[in-house]
């Protein structure tokens, strides 16, 4: 079977001919599959896909996102998740099934402006996304530096099995929470470490598609290069973005990790 790796495409470009399975960001036109986004096309045994290099965040079920409480009604909170739809967090999710709007004070649990880590439990584009904070490592974020990057850069920031983010965390002695919607919260005791981590994240965002990025990030962070890591850095310029699932795993391992460098 014909395989294509790392082919640069823009919308309308033909990726491959024949009866292949379209995965995402591809469209069937006659006998061929064409790209619908600017990105990197890959065709393999499992199907054909384009890893996009630009675009706003579109929610997907089971994504872990970081959101900001914008408002609340008597039954749910309205959360800005950096998408074109605002998410809803039902009050019962926090207070349990015996929630009573008359008895329970919602703004006491989550006030307007609070940041939360949440998981999208339902979204089908006909209704606004529904989120939950009832899971391990979800809930209110007490403190941290808040930054936004393009959601398409999140897999690159995490790196292969979390390599990039671990590098940044260890070098700057910070803890970095990443939402798949491109919202990031950096915490740490040292202000210099936080600002260095923010600079490294911005660098990854701007240069996500270039090769040798890992080396440049290490140079910024002042980490001496070791030969084995260099080879990984040059190789995985985009291979970390294989499919949505490893990204999420990588991220969950980040958020699940209770390591505290301090």
């Amino acid at each position: 079977m014909q395989e294509i790796r790392r082919k640069y495409v823009i919308p309308g470009d033909r990726i491959i001919e024949g009866n292949h399975r379209p995965l995402f960001n591809v469209l069937r036109a006659g006998n061929s599959l064409v790209s619908t986004r600017v990105g990197i096309a890959e065709a393999g045994r499992e199907g054909v896909k384009v890893i996009p290099l630009s675009g706003v965040y579109i929610p997907r079920t089971n994504d872990i996102v970081i959101g900001k409480i914008m408002d609340h009604s008597s039954l749910s909170w309205e959360v800005d998740i950096n998408a074109c739809f605002s998410a809803h967090l039902p009050a019962q999710d926090v207070f349990g099934r015996d929630f009573s709007p008359a008895r329970d004070d919602m703004s006491r649990e989550l006030a307007i402006g609070d940041l939360i880590t949440a998981r999208i439990i339902a979204f089908d584009r006909t209704r606004d996304p529904m989120i939950t904070i009832q899971d391990k490592d979800l809930g209110k974020i007490p403190r941290g530096e808040f930054i936004k990057i393009s959601a398409t850069r999140v897999p690159r920031l995490i790196g292969k099995r979390g390599s990039m983010i671990q590098t940044i965390e260890q070098a700057t002695r910070t803890r970095i929470l990443i939402g798949q919607n491109g919202v990031i919260v950096v915490t740490g005791r040292n202000a210099d470490g936080i600002s260095l981590a923010v600079r490294a994240i911005r660098m990854v965002e701007e240069e996500a598609h270039t090769s040798n990025l890992t080396q440049r990030v290490k140079a910024l962070l002042g980490i001496p290069e070791s030969p084995s890591e260099t080879s990984i850095g040059t190789h995985n310029a985009h291979s970390s973005e294989d499919s949505p699932s490893p990204i999420r795993k990588g991220e969950e391992s980040q958020e699940g990790k209770e390591q505290n460098p301090e």
Binding site: G12, V34, T36, V38
Partner: peptide, 11 residues
């Protein structure tokens, strides 16, 4: 539009 990452059939 392509730069904004909107799904397009063609330019």
């Amino acid at each position: 539009l392509a730069d904004a990452g909107i799904n397009m059939r063609d330019i």
